[in-house]
Write a protein that binds this DNA or RNA. Structure first.
Length: 478
RNA sequence: GGGGCAGUAGGGUAGCCUGGUCCAUCCUAGAGCGUUUGGGACGCUUUGACGGCGGUUCGAAUCCGCCCUGCCCCA
């Protein structure tokens, strides 16, 4: 029927849209023949590269990058009781070297605490060594039993940034958690992704943490996606792994630790949050191609136009923009759709009319068409990029704002969630009431101590028992 | 954790119940030639498939078993 809109499903069918855009825009190929493992296409990997470059820049302000091994010996992995309980059903084990059974089984890291902390115990001697702030970006393996999804629920997480810090005191570690939340917010702000931050309930915290603060994004269908977590580990791990330092008085002290993580779910959020019926919309900051030049070559001015476009491309590249000139033998319209699908934020059209007028036609992926002066094109594009970024951000903020609402009963909660919203309720923080909230509305408690400009975090009566309660985010999660 | 649907060429589908043939079919798919080119051009030629393993059978995309993978729904 509407065969001119391509076959990308509309955004209302978010699940269909997401599955389809991954291969149409050449981000991930799901056809790798092992469950939960997917292949990055070059274009998807280029997006990943620019996103992770930003992440590295942020972390390198304060952390140092490092790299630990993939394999963890069983006895180290089994040291911390809570941690084991949290991960034992999800661990892949290496049991053989060739045909020889191994004396000591080796775990493929599901996360790297038990790989890193024995080394931290060796590295840490004195209070003068503190704080230690290292991170790595690695793949991790989890034998997920729930349905796997590309970028969202994987058996091999390919892009796991995990930071592990060590501090003298609990308070310093807490301050580090706050700092890391700030980094996370800044990171997502750069991707124009609004987030809600909240403290996970105790039963949902990281295995072996004092507390977990999570960062969630609200997807187009109203489901929430956890896209970052910060954990205060207290001294749980320093006890088991013997991470101690001598204080100024020469006395041995247990260290306090934090860890936090961000994965390719950040890419899932990026492509989900900003897309439309035509495809991806990438913020200029992370778009592998920030602007595409489409020369409109007709008749005998073919050479003229091509020369002008080549010059334009060279000028823009020299100015540091990531541009691509599309000289393929296709009709201009077909090229427009092709680049729109891939989310390129700006299209520059250059034809005989524009050359004569000293202009370049600039079409924003967010929908607006403007004519830029060729003479001042660098400034013009810089301005346009800022406008595009703002438009993308504003749209995402509006989405997030409109998908949050306060409710004061389980019926209202159910209604809100069924409408695809994330709700704010009051909850007394008792497990029983928490379970009741989750069961009655088929939902998950995301957390308390909510931080979001769109959430009123003041106290109120628990919607189950009526006792004093705290503002709490409740949603349906990925 | 439970249930369901599905896997046929790059993508989308038919065929399966009721096993057999000569050509599967459509496309924004691949290769090629020509005409085209300011919002998805067209003509012609051509390439290419039954998820895997095993079983039944003279003969399997089709029936049976096991496995793998994907997707949807519910908890």
């Amino acid at each position: 029927m509407d065969d001119d809109s391509g076959t990308l499903p509309p955004r209302q069918d978010f699940s269909g849209w997401f599955n389809d855009i991954l291969w149409r825009a050449e981000i991930m190929d799901v056809r790798y023949p092992v469950k939960g493992l997917y292949v990055w296409y070059p274009y998807g990997f280029a997006i990943r590269k620019f996103v992770y470059n930003r992440l590295r820049e942020l972390l390198d302000r304060d952390h140092q990058e490092t790299l630990f091994p993939l394999l963890i010996p069983e006895q180290e992995f089994m040291k911390e009781a809570e941690h084991i309980k949290g991960f034992e059903d999800e661990v892949y084990w290496v049991t053989h070297g060739g045909t020889t059974p191994l004396d000591v089984k080796l775990a493929l890291r599901p996360t790297s605490e038990t790989a890193i902390y024995p080394m931290y115990a060796l590295w840490l001697r004195s209070h003068a060594d503190l704080p230690m702030k290292y991170y790595q970006i690695v793949n991790t393996f989890r034998y997920e039993t729930k349905q796997t999804r590309p970028l969202i629920r994987l058996r091999e997480i390919t892009s796991f940034m995990e930071s592990h810090t060590v501090h003298a005191t609990w308070d310093e570690a807490e301050a580090q958690c706050e700092y890391e939340l700030g980094l996370t917010k800044e990171f997502y702000d750069g991707l124009c992704i609004p987030v809600t931050i909240s403290k996970r309930p105790d039963w949902d915290k990281f295995p072996g943490a004092d507390y977990t603060i999570a960062v969630d994004a609200i997807m187009p269908n109203g489901k929430t996606l956890q896209i970052g977590t910060v954990h205060h580990l207290g001294t749980h791990f320093s006890k088991t792994f013997g991470i101690q330092y001598e204080d100024k008085d020469g006395k041995a002290q247990l260290a306090n630790q934090t860890c936090y993580g961000i994965s390719e779910r950040s890419i899932a959020a990026l492509i989900s949050m900003h897309g439309d019926d035509k495809g991806l919309i990438l913020p200029p900051a992370v778009a592998p191609v920030q602007a595409v030049i489409v020369p409109i070559t007709i008749g005998k001015r073919h050479e003229d136009v091509l020369a002008a476009a080549t010059k334009l491309e060279a000028d823009l590249k020299a100015a540091g923009f990531r541009v691509k000139m599309d000289t393929r033998d296709m009709r201009p319209g077909a090229k427009y759709y092709w680049w729109e699908l891939r989310g390129v934020p700006l299209r520059l059209e250059l034809g005989p009319r524009d050359i004569d007028a000293g202009k370049v036609m600039a079409v924003k992926r967010t929908g607006e068409k403007t004519s830029l002066e060729r003479a001042t094109i660098i400034d013009g594009i810089t301005t346009v990029f800022a406008e595009i970024t703002e438009a993308i951000r504003a749209r995402a903020e509006e989405h997030t704002k409109s998908h949050l609402c306060a409710v004061d009963s389980t019926d209202a909660l159910n209604t809100a969630l069924n409408e695809g919203k994330v709700a704010v309720v009051h909850w007394c923080r008792e497990r029983g009431c928490g379970d009741a909230i989750e069961e009655k509305a088929n939902s998950s408690i995301l957390g308390t101590e909510v931080r979001s400009p769109y959430v009123d975090a003041s106290d109120g009566k628990c919607i189950i028992c009526g006792k004093p309660g705290r503002a709490t985010l409740v949603g349906r999660t990925y």
